[in-house]
């Protein structure tokens, strides 16, 4: 347990644990909405927030949260209003976010090394103040994404049905985007802004190879996320590598293992995917069955 003897490693492991829990929790809803890359877009926007923090002397984590939340809200509003399709809205923010981030960091006198620590994570830089903010925001994200699970599930599953059920679909959609933005900034110091989306999506992709239910997918994705994040920090410390890439590669390894396992489980249940919808229509036309 030598690594726990270091204060900064205790903080890093705590931050990784919370990131591993929150990123797949909100990521499950993004994947369900087929907006898996939203986290990536928000990560790029958050970089502008970091740069603003560096430029103004504020805590970068705080300015990143504010800018990411604002950007995520605008993306979702653009999508809901039909002004831009989800992927085009995202693309605009990808490029704008990273360009402004690099430009502003340069103006602030920051170097490529400064940026790299935010892009790919830097364990030694998690301060006590950072950790406190991470704990508070993670508690918020988990409370909402688990407490409102029935509502968020319904909105992400079928927007039209949710609207006719009287649910404030726009408000819930923006809420999901805001939670995603908060999660991205939480993960900034562990996985880094460029790879955070992987921790939102890859554990979910791995989990759904093995599950049939939404709740089971959510729970398993969170478990896999924690496993990848905590063991990733551990490994990256041991071999002196950047934590973000280590965590992401471990999560991907989970997918590589889960995928054939899921195929084997389905074949045992006698299920072939995807089901053949045309078969039914042919039966109908032929008057069979």
């Amino acid at each position: 347990m030598s690594l726990l003897a270091y204060d900064f490693m205790q903080r890093a492991l705590m931050a990784a644990l919370l990131t591993g829990l929150t990123a797949p929790a909100i990521g499950t809803y993004l994947v369900q909405k087929r907006l898996a890359l939203l986290g990536d877009g928000i990560g790029h926007i958050a970089l502008t927030g970091v740069a603003l923090g560096l430029l103004t002397g504020q805590a970068p984590l705080l300015t990143a949260v504010i800018v990411a939340v604002a950007g995520a809200t605008v993306i979702e509003v653009l999508r809901l209003r039909g002004r831009a399709s989800g992927d085009v809205a995202l693309a605009l923010f990808f490029y704008g976010g990273i360009a402004a981030g690099v430009l502003l960091t340069g103006l602030a006198g920051g170097s490529a090394a400064t940026l790299t620590s935010y892009l790919f994570g830097a364990l030694t830089t998690v301060s006590d103040a950072d950790l406190l903010l991470v704990v508070v925001l993670a508690a918020l994200v988990l409370t909402v994404s688990l407490g409102l699970a029935p509502q968020l599930f319904a909105v992400c599953q079928d927007e039209e049905h949710a609207r006719v059920s009287g649910m404030p679909v726009a408000a819930y959609s923006v809420l999901i985007s805001v939670l995603a933005a908060v999660t991205v900034t939480l993960a900034m110091r562990t996985v880094g802004l460029l790879l955070v989306s992987a921790l939102m999506v890859v554990p979910v992709a791995a989990a759904q190879q093995l599950t049939r239910a939404f709740r089971a997918t959510l729970a398993l994705a969170m478990a896999l996320g924690v496993l990848a994040a905590v063991s990733g920090v551990w490994v990256s410390f041991s071999v002196n590598a950047a934590p973000g890439p280590t965590i992401v590669l471990l999560a991907l390894a989970g997918f590589v293992v889960a995928s054939p396992l899921g195929g084997w489980l389905r074949s045992r249940r006698g299920v072939t995917m995807p089901t053949d919808d045309l078969h039914d229509l042919h039966d109908l036309h032929d008057g069979k069955d």
Partner: peptide, 27 residues
């Protein structure tokens, strides 16, 4: 009670038949 016109009941994440029908109780 509304049945929208859509090709599939599925989304990007697995969900059981019961989970989807239970969404009908949200209102």
């Amino acid at each position: 009670g509304y049945v929208p016109q859509r090709p599939s009941a599925a989304s990007g994440v697995p969900a059981t038949v019961r989970e989807i029908v239970t969404a009908g109780r949200l209102s």
